[in-house]
Simulated assay, not measured.
Amino acid sequence: MGIHRFEKTINKKTKVKKMHRFFISGSEAPYEIGDCIVIGGEDHDHLSKSLRMKTGESLVVCDRHQIEYVVVIRSVEKKQTVTQVIEKRKNDSEPAISVVLYQAVAKGSKMEWIIQKSVELGVDRIVPVITKRCVASPKDGEKKRQRWQKIAVEGAKQSQRGKVPQIEQPRDLEAVIGDDSFTVPNGVAAYEMEKSAGIKQWLKKRETEREFSVFIGPEGGFEKEEIEAMYQKKGIEAVGLGNRILRTETAGIAVLAMIMYEYEMN
């Protein structure tokens, strides 16, 4: 990705929300007004062939570090689109807290839906985990991760986020909680058998915290032994989510929404 300075710069205020959004690696950032940002690969194909964007149209480019650039297209070439920065600003849609979702791998398209909605809600990172009751167990973890990462990118674009959450390769739950070098700040596990401790009370005790780790079980839920091991090894507390039993694709989204409401809306 090359950078050069155009002699003429444009300083007019531009509305960001209605524009198409693309993410770049950020390796050459930060850019300044007048710099050239070259978009290539799949993003160029999408921009030029699917969206059919033309010279003179504007879009938003984000460097994955919460800095976004309003750019105007200067040329659409065969293998790349050349744009010029006309405005630079800090993205304001990222939450002030960090939530890592440890989601038991769900079967079929459920996992993709979970990733998409979690990204829209503001999750910081997603770690797919394999538990004892998991029905799905990806044979090619890296291939699956790449597919999930693309879904995260699309979710970040749609929700106007300033960065793309990282999707990690699937890991055994036992390996996660058994790794002494692996920290799990403010760990909480949704457990349908927990009747005395609820998510509301758990959140109230952590009003000043800014990092959270959410563990969600598979279609059949966590086994009792897994809940006990999570608490003993990492201090992960089990909480109930109410009087109804939620599906695995609902539970994580519900917990994320509760956390974001507590720390963003209040």
Rank of each mutant, 00 (worst) to 15 (best):
Q116T: 10
V119S: 02
I115S: 04
G122Y: 00
V105S: 06
I126Q: 01
V127D: 04
M111V: 11
P128N: 10
K117F: 02
Y102R: 01
V129N: 00
Q116P: 00
L121T: 01
I114H: 02
G122F: 09
E120I: 09
Y102G: 12
L101M: 09
D124V: 11
G108C: 12
V127H: 06
G108L: 13
V127E: 03
P128R: 06
E120C: 06
K107G: 04
I126G: 02
V105Y: 06
A104Q: 15
K110C: 11
I115K: 06
K107V: 11
A104N: 14
D124F: 05
V105C: 13
W113L: 11
K107I: 10
G122L: 05
W113C: 10
I114S: 05
V105G: 04
I115H: 09
G108H: 12
M111E: 03
I126M: 10
R125V: 00
V127G: 00
Q116V: 09
G108W: 11
Q103T: 14
V123H: 00
D124P: 06
V100C: 07
Y102P: 10
V119Y: 00
S118L: 01
K117P: 04
V119T: 07
V100Q: 10
V100T: 10
I114E: 04
K110G: 07
W113F: 02
M111K: 07
I126S: 03
S118H: 03
E112N: 15
A104E: 12
V119L: 09
V127N: 08
E112D: 14
V127I: 11
K117H: 05
V123L: 06
S109Q: 15
I126E: 03
V127C: 12
S109L: 13
G122T: 05
Q103P: 13
K107R: 06
P128M: 02
E120D: 13
R125L: 01
V119F: 04
E112W: 07
K117M: 05
I114R: 06
R125G: 06
S118A: 08
I115V: 15
R125C: 09
Y102V: 12
V129C: 03
K107F: 12
R125K: 11
I115A: 05
I114C: 11
I126Y: 02
S109K: 14
V105F: 03
I126H: 00
Y102K: 07
W113V: 07
D124M: 09
V100P: 05
L101C: 08
Y102F: 14
K107C: 08
P128C: 04
Q103W: 14
D124Y: 07
L101P: 03
A106T: 14
I126D: 00
Q103G: 15
I115W: 02
V127M: 04
A104P: 15
K107T: 11
P128Q: 02
G122W: 00
L121Y: 07
I114L: 08
R125N: 10
R125E: 09
S109W: 13
G122I: 00
Y102C: 12
L101F: 01
V129G: 02
A106C: 14
K110I: 03
S118W: 07
Q103I: 15
K117S: 08
G122V: 04
A106Y: 13
I126P: 00
A106F: 13
V127Q: 11
K107A: 13
V123Y: 01
Q116W: 11
